[in-house]
Amino acid sequence: MSGIIKGLIVTMKHVLHIGNRPTVTIQYPYERMKLSPRFRGLHAVDENACIGCGICEVNCPNGTITIVKYGTRWFPQFNIGMCMFCGLCVDVCPMNAIKMTGNYELADYTRESLIYTPERLLFSKEVKQ
């Protein structure tokens, strides 16, 4: 019995929050956890830096990336349905043009909408004058 009583005491301590045992739930849709700056979420491509060299395409293990023509230049297009967010494309980019944002809510209703064209990925850094 003594072991069970010991256990009962410890669980009661948690019920009453005695001694640094707070409730830790985060009510997800209403509150969110703070992501670390290095979080690997949806990609973003620097419009000015990307040269469309295709090194990311070659190095992607899953064939997520295809280089497509957008406007007058070539940019990577990501099929997030196949991506495993390993970050290799970020590592190998010679221009440091790819970065990964903190966007992790990527679920969608169709497979087509999981293909992120350059239109949805490009950003351009503001250049200080």
Partner: peptide, 22 residues
């Protein structure tokens, strides 16, 4: 899982992923 969450946040700081680190 409460403690694991803390550890996973450390991993997230370290490499940006929580379970599949690379």
């Amino acid at each position: 899982f409460r403690e694991r969450e803390n550890a996973l946040q450390l991993f997230e700081m370290l490499c940006g992923a929580r379970m599949t680190f690379n």
